[in-house]
Design a protein around this nucleic acid. Structure first.
Lengths: 256, 256
DNA sequence: GACATGAAATGACCTCGGTGAATTGAATAA
DNA sequence: TTATTCAATTCACCGAGGTCATTTCATGTC
């Protein structure tokens, strides 16, 4: 393990906006507005300091006050079952919005924790919401984000209840690739910021299963694994294995 | 089977607002507003006729135009996997909002189908959204609904990746009970509008497993099953079995 | 360097719940 | 009434993936 964070824990943005200067949000905010309105928005945003690996942004049950956008680094969100084991509900990369599940609720339904050194932008929800009342464009973008979250979770439900272990891992890697590509990183060569344990937890599998499948995929020349470094050797085949490929209807009638 | 609908299919509200009279929405709309604003809202709503069992409200891939609120009856939403099998993503009862996953997307990410004769209210999204721009209260209620959908789906992810078959079925019945109670129906005696097949699909299990567990629960005097009629004999024990009960922290330190 | 520690990989074994087949039941139709 | 059909149940069997134990590897520490 890189750092030993254990209990730095729970950062709270303490008016650390230097010299009343608005925060630069270059290239990572999901809410894009024309200059004048963008100014208003930026005035309510607070930038976090660099948060060490293992820091909580918030805990499940904390009062819901803000949503967050990742600037750099990675977050996971998770719920805790009654037996105390965690269930990871999502990983969040730069540009992605965290804590939407708290909207309309008085408390956060999940915890959010950094997987590596991470910085975020905090959007205090009440000001954000009233801005959304003045700026239709912003309102639209917020509900769009929420809609996307809903759709992503539906995909995840499908994965968890219908896919085999192989399909889950393939889907995971494929979707990571797509997300990295969208953010301008390589689609085929990247570093997993989460542990095998976290991957398996997220996918509803045992660690051992993920391990075995990584090696199997490597033997099949699908990927190249070297610790946390992943190279995808064939995105096409990976996609095929993921089970998301829509096979042409012809295929099922092909009887001759 | 009650009717044989097969392909009544895909209803579209065709200006069936009788004599320009606004639709009565007694007791089933999730969006509650003071009189004046409520009027504005009601002017954009369209009421569906009674939809027979098996009717589609919309199909996955249809252009997203409206969200819906169930007035009477039951709906299911589902996605279709590439192999053509469906994955049910939710059941919706009177007062509940359907199609939130389409917001911010040009098409519906799921299909919605009636499980019995059902009526809905249609809220065309564009007018609804611009109203939301004028009525902060309405905006709040819409995003709250979406937030709740996100939280519900997170719970479902937890169920699908961590719970045993027994826990899933218990959770399903318990949550139904809570929802019925909220709507003013009996919490302990109700009729399942969905088939065993649909239950098992939703819960990520085989039909046979659901069947076995229903009989097991009955033997254990947890519930009384008679076809689609369910009587819950002990909500407390059902909740315990569901695995959602938070056991007091003391319990785990109780070593003497 | 040697040592310690936790993550990851590998293997042997086992179990929960899926599969397939057969039976029963309930609802509609003729 | 009987025939038909599809939902639901029950049983016997099996396999994907979990569990437990061991080994290997990587990283950090002294």
């Amino acid at each position: 393990m890189a750092e030993k964070p254990t209990h730095v824990d729970s950062f709270r943005v303490q008016n650390d906006r230097q010299r009343n200067q608005t925060v630069s949000t270059t290239g990572c905010q999901p809410f894009v507005l024309p200059a004048a309105e963008s100014d208003k928005l930026e005035r309510i945003i607070e930038a976090s300091p660099a948060l060490k690996k293992g820091t909580h942004l918030f805990h499940q049950g904390d009062p819901f006050m803000s949503i967050f956008v990742v600037r750099a680094g990675t977050l996971k969100t998770y719920t805790v079952t009654n037996e105390g084991e965690e269930q990871i509900t999502g990983f969040y990369f730069p540009g992605e919005v965290v804590a939407l599940g708290g909207i309309g609720n008085d408390e956060h339904p999940v915890s959010a924790k950094t997987l590596e050194t991470t910085t975020v932008l905090e959007y205090p929800y009440q000001p954000l919401d009233s801005l959304a009342g003045q700026i239709p464009n912003l309102r639209t973008q917020i509900v769009s984000c929420m809609g996307k979250e809903i759709r992503d979770e539906q995909q995840m439900m499908l994965l968890l209840s219908k896919k085999t272990a192989e399909q889950r891992v393939a889907t995971f890697l494929y979707k990571l690739s797509v997300r990295f590509k969208q953010r301008g990183y390589s689609a085929t060569l990247f570093r997993l910021s989460m542990s095998r344990n976290e991957i398996s937890n997220y996918l509803g599998l045992a660690v051992e299963t993920v391990s075995r499948i990584f090696t199997r995929f490597q033997k099949q020349q699908l990927i190249k694994v070297e610790g946390k470094e992943i190279e995808i050797l064939s995105l096409e085949r990976l996609y095929t294995v993921s089970g998301d490929e829509k096979q042409s209807p012809e295929q099922s009638v092909q009887y001759r």
